[in-house]
Computed example of a mutant assay.
Amino acid sequence: MALIDDHPVVLQGIESWYATSEERITVTARGSDVSTAMTEPGSAADVVVFDLQLAHGAPAYAQLEELSAHGRQVIVYSMYESQAVALMCLELGAFTYLTKTEGERHLVAATLAAAADRPYTPPALAGAFGCDTSADRPNLSRREIDVLLKWFQSESKAMVGESLGLSVRTVNTYLDRVRIKYANVGRPAKTKANLITRAIQDGIVSLDEL
């Protein structure tokens, strides 16, 4: 994984947290620029911890979007405690959003979740979901919602199919339709974690249910 922050002390601190965590997390690259994480997809740098305020400037949304476009699971780790900023980062493809006040426990847990493509919702992001009032919701059918929710609760698409009486191919078709509908309203959701984020934002599933 890679760390991107323009404060050497922050980089050192995060790496120390990872080194002393129960599940050792290896940092393969660290620096103050997105090029730090621009290795080939499938590398150990697929998970990126990203400071949104590089060089004390405006939020680095363009750099975040670039990382997401290259298939990185980006954990935004920022001093900004703005719900609007958190939601914007999710719209741009971030895996999750943490404020730096949330500390070691949440950052380590989010990193392990990102590596396993499991959703992770820290307290700051949970608050942001509750205040999301955007209107660009896709029009999902009842069956699409049923398949989506069952997939969130299952370990495999085969289990979804068995539960709903569908073939795996049909399950994939429904999930593909959902992704296309989200893409068509400008809110792409390429991974399972992204779809869960969208479903929470849109009130399809609650945090308590997950």
Rank of each mutant, 00 (worst) to 15 (best):
P59R: 08
K150V: 04
D117V: 04
R105C: 04
M1G: 01
T96E: 01
Q12C: 02
E162P: 00
G93P: 01
G13E: 12
T197C: 07
R24I: 09
P123S: 08
E144C: 07
Q12A: 15
R143C: 03
A116Y: 04
I145T: 14
E81S: 10
V48L: 05
T20L: 12
I196N: 00
V27F: 09
I14T: 02
L112V: 09
L98E: 02
F129C: 03
A115P: 00
R179M: 11
I200G: 00
R177I: 00
A135L: 15
L148D: 03
V76N: 01
A126Y: 02
Y18T: 03
E104Q: 15
S167D: 07
P59Q: 09
V171K: 02
E65I: 03
F50C: 04
A94K: 00
T26Y: 09
V85S: 07
A2E: 01
L54I: 07
R169Q: 14
R137Y: 10
G186T: 12
S206Y: 10
E162Y: 09
L92R: 14
T191V: 08
E209Y: 11
L164C: 08
A94T: 03
Y80W: 10
Q12F: 08
M38N: 05
L140H: 09
T133H: 12
E91V: 04
E23I: 13
L67V: 06
T28V: 13
L98H: 05
Y120F: 15
M88E: 15
T133M: 11
D33Q: 13
A115C: 03
D6P: 02
T28R: 12
R179S: 14
S32D: 15
T28K: 07
S68V: 10
Y80S: 11
P138A: 12
G186W: 12
Y174R: 02
E22P: 01
I180Y: 13
V147T: 05
A55H: 14
S154Q: 09
Q83G: 06
F95D: 00
R105D: 14
R177N: 14
L175I: 15
G203D: 09
T111Q: 04
H7S: 10
I204N: 08
N184D: 15
V74W: 00
Q12I: 04
L87W: 01
R72S: 01
K192W: 13
R118P: 00
D5A: 08
T26H: 12
R118Q: 15
A94W: 00
T111R: 02
A124C: 07
S156F: 12
V10Y: 03
L149D: 03
Q73A: 14
L107D: 00
A62L: 11
D5I: 04
P59H: 07
V147A: 07
G71L: 06
Q201A: 13
L54P: 03
A62H: 11
A113E: 02
L164V: 06
